[in-house]
Nucleic acid binder design. Structure first.
Length: 375
DNA sequence: AATGAGACCAACCGCTGGTTG
DNA sequence: CCAACCAGCGGTTGGTCTCAT
């Protein structure tokens, strides 16, 4: 009955991923697309469980991920959406396509939660109703069921207002991180994303990782590692290539031993605005290898990223990663559309009840006024 | 310079709903 | 129908880094 186990529990590697592992994973997904995580460890030889591979891909290697500083706009979006959705980080992340749920969650826990708490203290609203943390259960238990239900109703109303505000934030022009909600993206073909800055490709992520790795790894234990060390003399010109797929049909990914990783990577990072990387992104945002463009290409398996910052409607979540893209479309478009409809249809009806309900809701956690006055 | 505390974040753990055989 | 599995999610952990003392 059932299926065979997903992966061997013994011999599964844990801990931080190495650049080699990243390359193997990326190249495999490049060829086969995301999904079938169960097959990845066996087909690639990675000593990682499928779960770990999926997490590594979705949180770090996936193209279109922006890492680093959150903008004020993103902060606002997260705060509003957290007020609306609670700690449903995946749902929140669906409205910030460049950010992963893990990233948002970490940012919330390390920055925003503190920020909000400090703000509440400053405003003298620290009434032990820690709604933002979802720890208001104790206080809720002290109130009657009727009161709780009315408060919940008010909370929903407040959250809807918050989403309205969050949506309206997107109209600010020239904001580099002014990501329209998914439903708006197609309406703004002119809002071209600079792929190398806003959408960091997975190859770029790996290259950055490699650079850090080279800096922080004085000891080179393997031949490939020593090869990588030599790359530091390349004046930041890393190059990706020669990830050979010996048997594409079986999905086995081999890193060519003789060439090591110095030929594996070719990453021209001398100019951030003109990055030539390992994986090509076509006009549709497709993330592909030359092999995908031309099956007769002798350089099978060599990826090449050609950043095309001026391409219209660049959507790296599209393209070869259609499975994931499809999922994103479903999670991004449908909920927002429904929410918007909900908001619009209900706004007028709710307005009449607002005054009395808000009066009840004052005893709750953070209100709309608190969230909007934060900045 | 040493060190301890706090911040940060990548990755793991455990749970859940849906799917498969 | 049911047990096993898969994929995804949110909570938590632990290693590393930064900064103050």
């Amino acid at each position: 009955m059932g299926r065979p186990p997903c992966c061997e529990k013994t011999g599964v590697k844990k801990g931080p991923w190495t650049p080699e592992e990243d390359i193997i994973l990326v190249s495999y997904i490049q060829e086969h697309g995301p999904g079938n995580w169960r097959n990845i460890p066996t087909n690639t030889g990675l000593l990682r469980c499928s779960k770990s591979c999926r997490l590594r891909w979705t949180n770090y290697l996936r193209p279109g991920i922006k890492r680093g500083n959150f903008t004020e706009h993103e902060e606002k979006m997260i705060i509003h959406l957290q007020a609306l959705l609670g700690n449903r980080w995946a749902a929140i992340a669906s409205y910030l396509p460049q950010r992963t749920d893990n990233d948002i969650k970490n940012y919330w826990n390390t920055h925003l939660k503190k920020k909000l708490n400090n703000n509440k203290k400053v405003e003298g609203h620290d009434d032990n109703h820690d709604h933002q943390d979802g720890t208001s259960a104790s206080s809720q238990s002290k109130i009657s069921k009727g009161q709780w239900e009315r408060r919940l109703q008010t909370d929903i109303h407040t959250a809807k207002q918050a989403l309205c505000d969050a949506l309206s934030l997107d109209t600010t022009p020239n904001n580099n991180n002014n990501n329209p909600p998914p439903h708006d993206q197609e309406q703004q073909p002119s809002s071209v994303q600079t792929s190398t800055t806003t959408y960091a490709s997975s190859a770029e992520n790996i290259a950055k990782l490699l650079q850090n790795w080279m800096k922080n790894s004085p000891k080179s234990t393997s031949s490939s590692s020593s090869k990588i060390t030599q790359m530091s003399s390349l004046n930041n010109n890393l190059s990706i290539g020669a990830v050979s797929s010996s048997s594409p049909s079986e999905g086995t990914v081999n890193v060519t031993p003789g060439q090591g990783l110095d030929s594996l990577f070719s990453f021209n990072s001398s100019n951030n605005s003109d990055v030539s990387q390992s994986v090509s992104v076509d006009e549709g945002g497709n993330f592909s290898t030359p092999e995908n463009h031309n099956n007769n290409n002798n350089n099978a398996g060599i990826f090449q990223v050609e950043s095309k910052p001026n391409l219209p409607d660049f959507k790296p979540e599209n393209g070869n990663f259609q499975v994931e893209s499809k999922q994103n479309m479903e999670t991004q478009q449908v909920p927002l559309t429904m929410l918007e409809k909900w908001l619009l249809d209900d706004a007028n009806a709710q307005a009449e009840q607002e005054d009395q309900l808000m009066g009840i809701g004052m005893g709750m956690g953070m209100t709309l006024a608190e969230t909007t006055d934060l900045f």
